[in-house]
């Protein structure tokens, strides 16, 4: 990684998202930082309420009030975008950052033909004549695998099946050739056989266009097949981040380990699945220290009750980075040995 001195395409630094309520501020995303390089697919995985979708919404500037960015910076190609005025942000949206959402039916306006929606997006962001825009729209539809695109372009969203609609949404996201795509649960509403098609498509297009993708999903299978790196979120924090193969095969954080064990897979003969007892804390009651400590089986392996008092930083652990005192103390010990040696 150190061989690329260039600025990463997307940098999120110490992002903190809060929801003011009458019982005080709820912190939905708590001081997270990550980068996405150009052309890279970063998977953001977590259970519901982990803050993964909010992170995606914050990057694209679509955080629903009363949610707000309380702290931190979001930089796109080195330029700060989290504090831009609405008009500036609108220009970036679609042009530089595209979005694919979960439900393809609600992402498209049912009253307009899909052609009109794609052409409008192209004309807003690119300097093309109407005829050129239309030609580009047909080209895009062809690219996402819609048969007879020149005819289908004048059809309405309801005339497409679920999988085809999601293809249209993808073509819409790609319309202005953005550098980054935020894909929030793009396959969740689809059947398994269609999921595979859509994942393959997203991967292929991003490789061809050199687009970076932030893939937000709860489905580890989708991440495993699509992402280059993965960030595992828990209770608004990143528990572990690293190359996808490493995180899946040798997870370091106890939460990631539990999560991997809990996924049933075909042909595994275990009678019981590994389970993480308890449930994710509510935002109003996030435990002190490591947010995972009440469910963690290894709390007692860390001396001085550190897990229940002090929040761990993301630090290198194995080939990934994990926010866990187990690894910090191990690292500290090796440091000490290094000092004494």
């Amino acid at each position: 990684m150190s061989s690329t001195p260039a600025v990463p395409l997307l940098q999120v630094k110490n992002l903190r998202i809060e929801f003011p309520t009458r019982r005080g501020n709820l912190t939905a995303v708590d001081d997270i930082s990550f980068d996405i390089a150009a052309g890279e697919v970063l998977g953001v995985v977590g259970e519901s309420g982990a803050g993964k979708s909010l992170t995606g919404a914050a990057v694209i500037g679509l955080l629903e009030p009363p949610g707000r960015i309380a702290n931190g910076e979001i930089l796109l190609a080195g330029r700060r975008i989290d504090n831009l005025p609405f008009e500036e942000l609108r220009k970036i949206r679609g042009r530089e950052i595209g979005a694919i959402f979960q439900d393809p039916l609600t992402s498209l306006n049912p009253l307009y033909t899909i052609g009109r929606q794609i052409i409008e997006t192209i004309e807003t962001h690119l300097d093309l004549t109407h005829a050129q825009a239309r030609a580009r729209a047909i080209e895009l539809l062809n690219e996402v695998g819609i048969p007879a695109a020149d005819r289908r372009i004048d059809h309405y969203p309801h005339q497409f099946s679920g999988g085809m609609r999601q293809r249209v949404v993808i073509s819409l996201a790609l319309a202005a050739n953005p550098k980054l795509i935020i894909a929030d649960e793009p396959t969740t509403a689809l059947d398994v056989s269609i999921q595979a098609q859509i994942i393959t498509l997203i991967k292929k297009l991003c490789r061809e266009h050199g687009t970076a993708v932030m893939l937000v999903t709860h489905d580890m299978g989708v991440i495993a097949e699509t992402a280059d790196r993965v960030a595992v979120m828990y209770a608004g924090r990143i528990a572990e981040i690293g190359p996808v193969a490493e995180v899946i095969h040798s997870p370091q954080h106890p939460y990631t380990i539990g999560l991997m064990g809990a996924i049933p897979s075909v042909g595994d003969a275990h009678e019981r699945l590994a389970q993480i007892d308890g449930s994710m804390p509510r935002l109003s009651a996030i435990p002190k220290g490591c947010a995972f400590n009440p469910r963690c089986t290894r709390v007692n392996d860390v001396p001085n009750h550190r897990c229940t008092t002090e929040r761990p930083e993301l630090l290198p652990a194995g080939k990934t980075k994990a926010a866990c005192w187990l690894h910090v103390s191990a690292a500290a010990q090796t440091d000490k040995q290094a000092v004494t040696a």
């Binding site: 398994v192 056989s193 999921q195 595979a196 098609q197 994942i199 393959t200 489905d219 580890m220 299978g221 989708v222 495993a224 097949e225 996808v244 193969a245 899946i248 095969h249 991997m260 996924i263 897979s265 075909v266």
Partner: peptide, 14 residues
């Protein structure tokens, strides 16, 4: 079409 965690990086049969 089942996503398989063990097949990281490989393609599903579309």
């Amino acid at each position: 079409a089942i996503p398989d965690l063990k097949m990281t990086g490989k393609q599903r049969t579309p």
